[in-house]
Design a protein around this nucleic acid. Structure first.
Lengths: 227, 227, 227, 227
DNA sequence: TATGAATGAGGTTTCATTCAT
DNA sequence: TATGAATGAAACCTCATTCAT
């Protein structure tokens, strides 16, 4: 007596199609929270509303689930950034700030922020993760920021000796913010010195851009101050 | 050998005194490499050159070992920084750079860098760690850098709106560098875009100081350029 | 097979329902034989025909298994005695003998006899057991026998100074017989002086009743002699 | 620098001679309390005021220690009983009561009472214990009581059908009392229904003797009533 | 003789994975 | 497709026993 109409009933088919995504989401949350090894596969199943056995219908092992989680929640966010960066126009600092604030806020608030913590935590146990990560996250991310920095230098807006390092100076705090969100902030530590992420992002970029513009031929210093 | 002497042979006593440190070192290495949950207590013992049982003579449980590891490898490094910072004199940017480069190089190269990764990884499973971390690392570390920033502002060397954020802009990349050392770099990922930590540290500080000095009354801009 | 039926196959369900009882029985046998601490949980599982892991699906720990064993195999036997005693009529010695012989034979031959040994052995390690024991076994058991003794005194059949002590005189050998069954008798010790339990029970009661009736107003001495 | 005079100094020699007894006493207490398997050999050593290693200088293994404990604390008590019984004269009930009360009180209060519990608990794991027990305790104990019963029958003081059973009726409660002392009473269970051992012993013997004398040719009924 | 650090077999418990239904 | 009972390898931890001093 199936509760819904036709035999490969819509309800079940929809569930079936949604399952992998639901499992991946549950897995991400738990892996980020407790770490891969400390998460029991049954917990993942329960969090996705299915039973232990069902998990194994979709993923052949816990380890494959981990890889699927990372593949699933990466790339897209980064790639949208690339497109936006390429399309933008105007003073580089302004473009860059707009890009970083909107792009990174999306990352910070979405599931990708958790993947940062997860990857850092698990690369050494599963090095395949690393290759994927470099190719899909580090390289494109650096390409965007470095590209904009070079554009700024070419236009005489920035004075930069070492573009790579400057890109790191810009991005590393943003990455650590994501990690922070899923470690200290998630367990209510250091309440009194909590960072407001958006506020910090603005302050950080303002500071770095001031540094980038110092000594440049055509500093567009006003752009950032309004933030 | 007096019959009631409480003095066991020197060799045994020395071993006994050295054991905890040996075990803590082995534990740190493995916990940082594989994570707490994925490290078997026997691995720690073997890495320290003793048997499973011996580990439990010195630490009542794996969890207590973790806490001991974190307590053991923290604090000291940070505290020496505080003293050095207080003793320093001269242009603030110079003082700060000298402090950060020497202090952080020591941290980066020593075991404390691993603890950064470990704490980030395990706080959510063992929140006690977090309290300790804030009290012994975050608070003193921020105090040093914020203190120097305020000194710079008072002397008219820096123009800073938000001291806390600026301190974060300075420190977060250094922290992430430590984490990076024990995740991606440790498994030979991204060889082609490897960061040289010392080189980056200089470039990073130069950039940030340029930003801090922009708009200041008495910028001591020369100090940093020589680095 | 409706897809959302919560009805797993009958075979599995029946097994699942039978498992706890099978495990409890295996556990009782082994705990009585070897003692709690000397019984490995895997032995219990194997004796119940399942694997180590399965035991822990039904009982959260070995200690909980012990408590469950004791709760499971007590109470019922005693309570049936209470009802039979209340319903009986006729000369008290006769009633009492009938009750004790049938009731206690059932206890002696059933699993409850083992629980006597187990409780004696383990109370000091798990004092919770004791509370349960007094409430479910000692108190009701004494109530039955003391009640009948008082009835006998009221009717002038018995002369008893100290009802409690007399009840102990009656019951203690019966209890020790149960313990004996699972210690000496179970390992074939003292073959030449083996006690036949039923024969002893009769002889014991006859002797005690003779004592109880001595000096009574209306001794119903004949009732017992026929046993 | 030995703290006391001559080299095989008196103090150490005395200690050395006392050691086995001290260890046996500590072992008895702990084995009776927790059971053999649940007692750690280090606990025994510490309770005797020596270190783990020292225990193994005196007993080759934990199991041998158990056997030594039982051998050490048995026999003597029983044998003194035999001698006293043989030497006694007068009305059998009187002799027997005197014997049982003094003899058994000594047993109940001394370490032998614990051995009763221990033997019951451990026979099935170490059957050698049983042989020893029958030979040194059960047989002589039964011999004393049966002998006196037969003397009473011969003298026309008692009417007994089954001497063995009567001996059991007499002795079993006394044995259970010993076991009780080390199980329920030792953990403060059933405070409200606690038995006073001496009082119970008198009441018990009075009741049994009344039964034994019922129907005898020359009952010496007065002897017991004074108790 | 006495110690207690060290060992490692063995116990309890967990959990990824399978499989009958 | 979905379940969850069952498994057993493997993790944590204990403790009887040894042995260098």
């Amino acid at each position: 007596m199936p509760p819904f109409s036709s035999d490969p009933c819509l309800f079940r088919r929809r569930r079936k199609e949604a399952r992998p995504a639901e499992l991946l989401e549950a897995a991400l949350t738990l892996f980020v929270e407790k770490g891969f090894a400390a998460t029991r596969s049954e917990e993942v199943a329960r969090a996705a509303g299915v039973s232990k056995g069902t998990l194994y219908l979709y993923f052949p092992s816990k380890e494959e689930l981990l890889k699927a989680v990372i593949q699933h929640f990466l790339g897209t966010e980064i790639e949208t950034g690339v497109q936006e960066a390429a399309a933008a126009d105007g003073p580089t600092a302004q473009v860059m700030e707009k890009l970083l604030v909107t792009w990174w806020t999306r990352i910070y608030e979405g599931p990708a922020s958790g993947v940062f913590k997860l990857v850092i935590t698990e690369v050494r146990n599963f090095p395949e993760i690393g290759e994927f990560w470099v190719e899909r996250v580090v390289a494109p991310g650096m390409a965007i920021v470095s590209g904009l920095l070079r554009r700024g230098v070419e236009r005489g807006e920035f004075a930069v000796d070492d573009v790579e390092s400057a890109a790191h100076s810009i991005l590393m705090p943003l990455i650590l913010l994501c990690v922070h969100k899923h470690s200290f902030m998630a367990c209510g530590i250091g309440k009194d010195m909590e960072i407001d992420p958006v506020q910090f992002m603005h302050a950080h970029l303002r500071l770095v851009f001031a540094g980038l513009q110092a000594g440049a031929r055509h500093p567009t210093s006003t752009t950032v101050q309004a933030a």
